[in-house]
Design a protein around this nucleic acid. Structure first.
Lengths: 200, 200
DNA sequence: GTCTATAGGCAGATAGAC
DNA sequence: GTCTATCTGCCTATAGAC
């Protein structure tokens, strides 16, 4: 129970570290930020960071785990609130668009580009993120197809993969052009590719 | 005219440096390789590299310029040899597939992920690469549409952007899974999205 | 939990001999 | 053109006081 005089720091240090590191990775990549960067932004020392996360590899893994959990939560909320398959896909795309509007790349998308240089545990966590997304999308696509509101060729898993890679690619290229419309335009086209044609 | 006894080194040192650096960037990213890496692979010293390319920024720019020129040459050859718009698109996708089969990412795709940390001249060169690709694709799409073999909604420029980002995203995600089929499957779906439906 | 201080390594880069 | 030698800076990481 919350007491009136209770005052824990609004956000624990470990979380604040993750917040700053997450932003830096999403904008500059995993090799593009340092403990010194994070420390400076938080007004603490590098040594303190090592207390919360022993090494950069552990910090990186924690970033992906938290990001994936937050994403999974968002997908659950979509499932709970949005009934139709088409609207679920719209909401899914909006998750990406929101990241891009913050001028960030998808965390796991940018880490996919650096995949070769990542520590093993980080690699595994990145792949899990995409597997989870694919599974969720495949379910939505399958139900949408059964309901007749969605239409696509091949397996739902296949179509889900294409959607994810299409969205990640659209984010990747939107940033150099600093133009979110580049993403939105590509996203609309991707969605149009799985929506059942009403003229048929 | 070539003389029988003439023997320049088969490949000039600067080219060999670019060859090694290109492979390293395409697999590990621009921040993922060092002058020491390149020097070791070539059996020369770091200092020698600085003779050919004063700094990493100049080396990086030279990489993109050469890569773009080679790509432009490939597009010219496609234009010269391949008549139909559909086959041109197939040949275009094959350019990407070939890179991926060498277990590399598109040079400018991986640099797009690192865009924020790149020197200005490298950024400009990356954007030019994508602009050139978009222009070529838009021309192919426009002619294909006029000929009735291709069909897509919106502008050709828009569709070209979507194709490029779709292909880049498919490469990006194929590598963590070490599975070229992931790329091929997504590429087929992208092409199917612009091919005129014969049933219409 | 946070600090100061520092270790140890590797990065990009330069000077100057050959 | 290539070398040796060296510089400077930043990186990750640790020891140990408070």
């Amino acid at each position: 129970m919350a007491v009136a005089t209770a005052r824990k720091p609004a956000v624990p240090t470990a979380e604040r570290i993750l917040d700053v590191a997450e932003r830096l990775v999403q904008t500059r990549g995993f090799k593009g930020f340092s403990y010194a960067d994070v420390a400076e932004h938080l007004g603490i020392t590098k040594a303190s960071l090592h207390y919360h996360f022993p090494g950069k590899a552990e910090l990186g893994e924690a970033l992906i785990v938290r990001y994936s959990a937050r994403f999974a939560g968002a997908l659950e909320r979509i499932d709970a609130k949005v009934p139709s398959a088409g609207a679920k896909l719209d909401a899914y795309v909006e998750l990406y668009a929101k990241v891009l509007r913050a001028r960030r790349m998808c965390l796991c998308g940018i880490l996919a580009a650096e995949f070769e240089t990542l520590p093993g545990p980080m690699r595994d966590a990145v792949v899990r993120f995409f597997d989870d997304n694919q599974a969720w999308l495949a379910t939505v696509l399958t139900r949408g197809q059964a309901d007749g509101v969605l239409s696509f060729r091949g397996t739902a898993e296949d179509a889900a993969q294409s959607l994810i890679s299409g969205l990640e690619g659209a984010m990747l290229l939107a940033r150099p052009y600093a133009d979110p419309r580049r993403f939105e335009s590509a996203a609309r086209r991707l969605l149009a590719g799985v929506v059942a044609d009403p003229e048929r």
